[in-house]
Design a protein around this nucleic acid. Sequence first.
DNA 1: GCCAACGTTGGC
DNA 2: GCCAACGTTGGC
Length: 157
Amino acid sequence: MSRRCWLMKSEPEEFSIDTLKKVGVEPWSGVRNYQARNFMRDGMQVGDGVLFYHSNCDEPGVVGIAEVASEAYPDPTQFDARSDYHDPKSTREGPRWLLVDVRFRRKLARTITLAELKASAQLEDFALIQRGNRLSVLPVTPAQWDFILSLEKRSAA
DNA sequence: GCCAACGTTGGC
DNA sequence: GCCAACGTTGGC
């Protein structure tokens, strides 16, 4: 079985690594992008590693490690008229949006900042830092995963 | 708060 | 099916 790794973005004001630590396992609701959905549906397997990334905040970067804790299943918020994630065009018979459960593994000793990732020649091809990339769920190669985590032990640049 | 990048919508 | 308009993401 080949090793698969992912990166998932969250705005810390909405849902932070500390919140995940507290709750343990969280249904990753609210993904409303087809490419991101397809990664969850077609790519993810239970146990896959996930880099937890804080976006849209003072210090964007990788802040922790989680893992995929379920197969993809329909995101219940798409059916909830009161939810921000409600999708009136989705039906229970043919749900548009899926999610996976995400389980906390550990918090990093420090934030590995976006600036550092961008400055690393080894990460030239990393989907996160490709120009204009807004995907909230994206694949990470094992080599990229290992390199990113090797940065944890270094002092901030 | 600004704005570039990009996805989606809808008129035609 | 094209594409302009619009909305969202997310770094800065």
